[in-house]
């Protein structure tokens, strides 16, 4: 019984939150890695892109709520999601047309594109704050919990509860669907294959008649959709605040690099590696150990390796270790 309690505690405070957070990071890191693979630069504007898409979702959710439209137990944001994705895709195409294409035509060095993406970051960041303001917004409605701690306790008769928020469950389910679709697209369709070919060897792809502008356009469309998805799921799980979204840039990069920049599978694995290490290292193990160990060995302190405030440091230290010892990441990405 004690062992089961320990397991449930662990699931409640570590496994469920880390799974949800990991899925959100994976979706975000996929965007970073796709841009790197196809356009060959690290996109500093990615987290603000995500904030932009989510902002449209939040606004549309408000409109739907005003009309009294809802999805019952599911959050209304799911209904607003397609609008956010479309708006974000439009933004991506506009920035590509008016900003990035010029530098692509010039064959500018990647570092120039990184600096340009810093400019785009400022613009998008300002745009989001201009339209929706810097405030923290909670836009999740519908049923709050899939299973609440209380129901779980009553069902199983255990002392510890396991709560699964609707946002967390939705995150994992939607992320699985999105990733499955993405891999089907990349591996089975003509456009997807041409994207992979372009990422692998640009000259060879051009020789075989692949239209680079089309590849780039499709990439931006996918990135816009993925970023909106990641942002909406993160917001449903936690809340929407432009500054928090901006700060997700570092974990995204960490996840993408740990997995190997330019490698989609790597981005997903990297997302979960970062999420689980952040949660595991900052978690106080006291309760779990009290259940799992005999009474005489029960710990007195929190048994927390480092304080929660250093969560960012965790993703960063992993990033640094990977960069120093295996610069191409766990799944060898490209090093341009």
């Amino acid at each position: 019984m004690d062992f089961l309690n320990a397991l449930v505690t662990l699931a409640n405070f570590v496994i469920v939150p880390a799974l949800a957070y990991g899925s959100q990071l994976a979706l975000g890191a996929l965007g970073v890695t796709l841009i790197y693979g196809i356009l060959r630069f690290s996109n500093f504007a990615h987290s603000d892109t995500m904030a932009f898409g989510t902002m449209v979702v939040v606004l549309m959710t408000g409109v739907f709520q005003g009309w009294g439209v809802s999805l019952g137990p599911l959050p209304t944001a799911l209904l607003a999601l397609p609008f956010g994705m479309l708006a974000c895709m439009a933004l991506m195409l506009l920035t590509d047309r008016y900003v990035y294409r010029f530098y692509r035509a010039q064959r500018a060095k990647p570092v120039v594109l990184v600096i340009v993406s810093m400019g785009v970051m400022f613009v998008t960041n300002g745009l989001v704050r201009l339209i929706i303001g810097p405030k923290d917004r909670n836009f999740a409605d519908g049923e709050r919990f899939l299973i609440s701690a209380r129901t779980f306790k009553e069902m199983t008769g255990l002392d510890e509860g396991l709560a699964i928020k609707t946002g967390q469950a939705l995150t994992v389910v939607i992320a699985v669907i999105a990733v499955a679709w993405l891999f089907w697209f990349l591996n089975r369709t003509r456009t997807g294959k041409s994207m992979r070919a372009y990422s692998d060897n640009e000259d060879l792809a051009l020789l075989s008649g692949i239209n680079p502008e089309r590849v780039v356009m499709v990439t931006w469309l996918i990135v816009g959709a993925l970023a909106t998805l990641a942002g909406t799921l993160y917001g449903l799980d936690k809340s929407f605040k432009p500054f928090t979204y901006f700060q997700l840039l570092l974990p995204f990069f960490a996840a993408a690099i740990v997995g190997g920049l330019g490698n989609p599978i790597g981005a997903i694995v990297g997302g979960f590696v970062i999420a689980f290490s952040e949660v595991l290292i900052a978690y106080g193990w006291k309760k779990v150990l009290t259940y799992a160990l005999p009474d005489s060995l029960a710990p007195e302190g929190l048994v927390q390796m480092i304080s929660t405030d250093y969560k960012f440091a965790v993703s960063f230290v992993i990033l640094l270790i990977v960069l120093l010892f295996r610069p191409t990441g766990l799944f060898s990405g490209k090093s341009v």
Binding site: L249, L250, S315, L320
Partner: peptide, 15 residues
């Protein structure tokens, strides 16, 4: 490499 250095320094500043 240049963009890795950028990301590394971004992280160090946060730490």
């Amino acid at each position: 490499r240049s963009d890795y250095l950028a990301i590394a320094t971004l992280g160090i500043a946060e730490i």
